[in-house]
């Protein structure tokens, strides 16, 4: 007991009060950034309408919001939805009556969401900003939701996964190991969204370019830079090898691919945020144009 109280004395000196920099700025920005995205994307997915614009034309081409791509089912009674030939499986089925807003976004958002949730960059971001264990480097973890400031300073609060109970990603969070499977689906989405970008170059079968075309073309490029810089791809494409020069194939294919992925991987955080913001903006733009609030400037003259 005597030793415990003495150790407490030492720990009292080596506490957060010594830190003079504003360590809370970065986790706060991440917290606000991620919460805003989650709030907007949930609202946007809930709507189930105004995610398509083709100026009422039924021919090939149009703008499709990335939140709704691919459109598995379409409810044609809603406004701002693509023509029925865009639906993968047809009209909205009876048995999905319980999905909020009869929105096809709910059926596909789990894929990009699981990829981002298990991403090695986002783990850093949300562990710091949400679990606050630690909120920033060398800052003592804030344990639990305090009811008053003195709860933090007196170290009274303890929550799951902190202190002796901390088990990192060896306990419940062992689920993070599905990241590479989430990545396989995320790669498929890059191709789907690239097709949507191609679609955005047409309206009623006629080639053209509009502001939406540019926005929806940049979207898969940024998402591609983020997805193809993934740590799991970096491992599977060549990081798992110990000797590149041992075979010509490994030398030319694996090592060169690994170098390209490494280039993107070094900028994973940058592309994680750019692609997140851009995918949100793409939905905002398509929604505003579809609702008639914004007029798309384009070469079709519509």
């Amino acid at each position: 007991m005597l030793l415990y109280s003495k150790l407490k004395e030492k720990e009292k000196i080596l506490n957060n009060d010594l830190i003079t920099e504003n360590w809370w700025v970065s986790p706060l920005l991440v917290l606000l950034g991620l919460l805003s995205f989650v709030a907007y994307s949930t609202w946007a997915a809930w709507q189930g309408e105004h995610f398509w614009w083709s100026a009422g034309n039924e021919g090939f081409g149009g703008y499709l919001s990335p939140f709704y791509s691919p459109t598995v089912y379409i409810d044609p009674s809603k406004s701002g939805v693509p023509p029925m030939n865009h639906a993968l499986l047809g009209t909205w089925p009876e048995w999905l009556w319980w999905l909020p807003g009869q929105s096809p976004a709910w059926l596909i958002l789990i894929f990009p969401l699981s990829f981002r949730f298990t991403c090695y960059y986002y783990r850093k971001a949300y562990y710091r900003a949400f679990s606050l264990n630690p909120p920033a480097c060398a800052v003592t973890p804030i344990k639990g939701i305090p009811s008053k400031v003195s709860d933090i300073t007196n170290n009274k609060i303890k929550i799951f996964n902190s202190g002796k109970r901390y088990d990192g990603e060896a306990g419940l969070l062992i689920l993070q190991n599905i990241h590479r499977y989430a990545m396989y689906f995320a790669v498929i989405f890059i191709f789907i969204l690239s097709y949507d970008a191609f679609l955005a170059f047409f309206n009623n079968g006629k080639f053209g370019i509009g502001v939406g075309t540019v926005i929806l073309t940049i979207n898969p490029i940024l998402l591609g830079c983020y997805t193809f810089g993934c740590h799991s791809i970096r491992h599977l494409i060549g990081g798992n090898l110990d000797c590149y020069s041992c075979s010509l194939y490994k030398d030319k294919v694996n090592h060169n691919s690994w170098k390209i992925v490494t280039f993107l991987n070094r900028r994973h955080q940058l592309f994680a945020w750019l692609s997140l913001i851009w995918v949100g903006l793409s939905d905002v733009y398509v929604r505003l144009v579809s609702m008639g609030i914004v007029n798309d400037i384009n070469t079709w003259g519509i």
Binding site: R123, Y127, R128, C137, A138, D167, G168, E169, I174
Partner: peptide, 12 residues
């Protein structure tokens, strides 16, 4: 598995 990629080691 104990590491949860908080990345402070890299920063320091």
């Amino acid at each position: 598995g104990m590491c949860n990629i908080t990345r402070c080691c890299t920063e320091v």
